[in-house]
Design a protein around this nucleic acid. Structure first.
Lengths: 107, 107
DNA sequence: ACTGTACTACGAGGAATTTCGTACTACCAA
DNA sequence: TTGGTAGTACGAAATTCCTCGTAGTACAGT
C-alpha cells in the first residue's frame, strides 16, 4: 500500500500555500475540487499541461497542504483539505475561490 | 513631477496579487502598511535586503496593485490599496493578514 | 502471465524570480 | 552651487520554477 507525505495543520506555511495558489493551473485544480463533491483522480482534470507536469503541480499542492492525495488502486484520489486550511488560515481559501470566480466572470 | 504606473481595479490579476503576497518580504511590507496609519517612505521599512532589491519588491507590489506609490519630494510614499483590493477581491487581503498574524504568533 | 491504466521519478532545458553592486537621477537644504 | 538623501535603472549572477519526454512502478482485469 503506497502512501504519500502530507504536512500537518501546524506545518502548513503561508508562503507555500499562497505560492501554490498563485499558479493558475494549480488554482484551477483547487477550485474544481471545491466545486465538485467527492474525490477525483488526477486524470479527470483535463489540464493544459503534460502528464508529468500535472504530477508536479499535484505534488506541489499536496506538499503545501492544499490537497490530500490517497492511492486507490492505481489511481490517486484528490481531495481539498478545506477543514485543515480553514482551521489554519481562516477565510483564505474562500477568499481565493471567490476571487477566482470574480475574475473568471467579469473583466 | 514624477509619476508611477498603477493598474486600475479591473486590471488587477489574481495570479499577480497572490504571487506578490506569496513572498515574505513583500508580505511584510503589505502587513506593515495595513497595521500603521498614514503613508510610509520606502526607507522606513528596514527590510533584510539591499536597497535595489527593496526597489524591486516595491515595484512588484505596485504593479500587482497591492500598494500605491507617489512621489513626495525625493521620497516615495507607499499606501496599501485596501479599498481597491477589497472591491476587486473581497476578503482576500484580510484573510492573508490574519493568516500572517496566526503564523507569526503560533506554531 | 499479459496487457492496459494511472501515475511517478529522473534528468534536462528554458523561463522567470530574486539578489546584488554600481552608476545614475531628482529633489531638498544650506 | 555644493552636498546629502531617496530612490531608480541597468546588467549580471544565482536560484527557483515550470515544462517536458522517457523510462519505470504498482495495480486491475482478462
Amino acid at each position: 500500500m503506497r502512501t504519500l507525505e502530507h504536512p500537518s495543520r501546524g506545518e502548513m506555511r503561508l508562503d507555500t500555500v499562497l505560492a501554490a495558489l498563485a499558479d493558475p493551473v494549480r488554482r484551477t485544480v483547487a477550485c474544481k475540487l471545491n466545486d465538485a463533491f467527492g474525490d477525483h483522480a488526477c486524470a479527470t482534470f483535463e489540464l493544459p499541461v503534460s502528464k508529468s507536469t500535472a504530477t508536479y503541480h499535484f505534488r506541489t499542492l499536496r506538499e503545501a497542504g492544499v490537497i490530500r492525495q490517497e492511492y486507490e488502486g492505481t489511481k490517486i484520489m484528490n481531495t481539498l483539505r478545506k477543514d485543515d486550511l480553514d482551521a489554519r488560515f481562516p477565510g483564505l481559501l474562500d477568499a481565493v475561490f471567490a476571487a477566482q470566480k470574480i475574475e473568471g466572470a467579469g473583466a
